[in-house]
Amino acid sequence: MSNDTRFKRYLKLDLLPTPWCPGCGNGIALKTICQAFGELELPKQGTVVVSGIGCSGRSAGFFDLDSVHTAHGRAIPVAEGIKYANDTLNVVVVSGDGDLLGIGGNHLLHAIRRNTNITVICYANETYGMTGGQVSPITPHNTKTLTTPHGNPDYPADVQSLFKHHNCFYARTTAYHLSHMKKCFLEALKFKGFSFVEARTMCIVNYGRRLGYKNSNEMLLHYKEFYRINDYAEELAQDEIGILKTTTVS
């Protein structure tokens, strides 16, 4: 894997480094997406990346592909418009949990219903990192954030349940489980229909720091200890990562 440099083709290397904080997990996901592109040898002419707003939204600009950086929460409808306009394109959405599940949640619901043949990769850092660390739709119960100083009174959204009955692809993975992450991206990209990967990435500066993690490595090790891989399960438990068993439709 380490000798495979095909992923570099998909990056605007001269724009690096990324604007992300030291210890951020987004870069891991970005590189892994490019590795998956490289492994599938996706044509650069014919692949489009769309992103929303937030830390993750900045990903689109780093791809050496045509890319669109849309308004907050609107990456999915823009991607659907692109796909319906030209279905020969590979359309990949890269955005965050606040963007895709919060402000853009309605679009996600309907893209699943329409089963539009696009791939959505969600950098799920459980917080609104760019604005300082507010509670997000998947922040765990009782977690302290800027807007929940006494702990999150709500429970995180059960994202996988949206997918179960629509023959769409859903996978959860983390920035620690690198080869599992790449496998999830590869399968999502190959899937004919709507595919969604919830990639847990760590935000140390505006999230983990307040939860008592000393550095981002501790957050990575938490992923290692907390999550078990359970691929092709009917349902993923809270402490499981894996690909949900779905019926492939083509």
Binding site: P77, V78, E80, G81, I82, Y84, N106, H107, L109
Partner: peptide, 21 residues
């Protein structure tokens, strides 16, 4: 396409226009 709301409509139109239509 009949979208789920007007926000999705205008954004799908933006996407389609960028995609050449």
């Amino acid at each position: 396409m009949q979208m789920e709301d007007e926000i999705a409509s205008i954004n799908a139109v933006i996407g389609a226009s960028l995609a050449g239509l």
